[in-house]
């Protein structure tokens, strides 16, 4: 073999090696780490995807990766890190608006209602392209609040007609939550034993408490009248115990009733909003 032929073979060897081993030395090349990071991100392995993206970011500046890292933190429910990462992108030309929206969504998901309130009132934060989307999230958060919503026209304004129809059911339900007053329940039971329980819709307990307290009081009086003082005091103690217990129990029953009503409402609302993706666009822009 002459030397030009050897040179050609060497060249061919290197060329074919590069074709076959395109990703090899490159398993840890920037391009491949990015590919691998994207794969992990779409598979939901966010912690490892963040590691890959962070490595790439040490070598090159890339807003897409920063945005994806912030999204990954949001998915991992590491909301503080997510907020900070989105904040860094507020001035990004490519992701500025989306970052503000996702930042606001992170506040919404982490129940930071006060910060949401401050941000929505800040004109420099609100951009026209995302204004409606932000207001939707802000208004939806009101449904979770214990306070009633004063202006219904403002509440439904950012939603379209179909969305408003769907939300109306929850709006009406929230405005008319059937809460019971613990103080009233206690007073009712003090006047007629068991009435407070009936008020909190614990009918069985109410009737039982009424009958027990009544029978025990009768027995106490009857025993005192028949000079059976020991049994008289015994039944008096029992009657007093049941009477006092019933007053306390009625107030507790009202508190439980309210907590139950609120819990059912919140859980139905969360299910509904999750199903409708919180009336915001799908944030999973990067995976098919």
């Amino acid at each position: 073999m002459n030397s030009p032929l050897i040179t050609r073979f060497i060249f061919l060897f290197v060329f074919l090696s590069l074709i076959n081993a395109q990703d090899k030395n490159g398993y840890f090349s920037l391009e491949n780490r990015l590919k691998f990071g994207n794969f992990l991100f779409c598979k939901g392995d966010y912690i490892r995807a963040i590691d890959e993206y962070n490595f790439v970011l040490t070598k090159q500046n890339n807003d897409t990766l920063k945005f994806k890292i912030a999204l990954a933190y949001q998915k991992l429910e590491r909301y503080d890190e997510s907020e900070n990462s989105f904040k860094e992108l507020f001035t990004s030309q490519q992701f500025g608006s989306e970052a503000k929206f996702e930042y606001f969504k992170t506040l919404y998901l982490s129940d930071k209602f006060e910060t949401m309130h401050k941000r929505i009132a800040d004109d420099s934060f609100i951009e026209s392209s995302i204004s409606d989307k932000l207001k939707r999230l802000y208004n939806l958060k009101h449904l979770y609040s214990s306070k009633s919503i004063e202006d219904s026209s403002k509440f439904f304004q950012p939603f379209n007609q179909n969305e408003s129809i769907e939300l109306l059911k929850f709006y009406v339900r929230k405005q008319n939550l059937d809460n019971k007053s613990p103080a009233l329940a206690a007073v009712l039971s003090a006047i007629i034993p068991g009435l407070g329980k009936v008020y909190t819709e614990n009918y069985g307990d109410g009737i039982t408490a009424f009958l027990l307290t009544g029978v025990l009081t009768f027995l106490a009086i009857d025993n005192f009248n028949a000079d059976h003082n020991f049994r008289g005091w015994l039944f008096t103690t029992l009657a007093a115990y049941f009477y006092a217990g019933n007053i306390y129990g009625s107030a507790a029953s009202a508190v439980l009733f309210n907590a139950n009503v609120r819990m059912n409402f919140d859980s139905d609302l969360t299910l509904f909003l999750n199903k409708n993706n919180h009336f915001s666009s799908n944030s999973n822009l990067f995976c098919k």
Partner: peptide, 8 residues
């Protein structure tokens, strides 16, 4: 050479 490169 091709097989060599594949094994590489």
């Amino acid at each position: 050479l091709f097989f060599c490169s594949v094994s590489f």
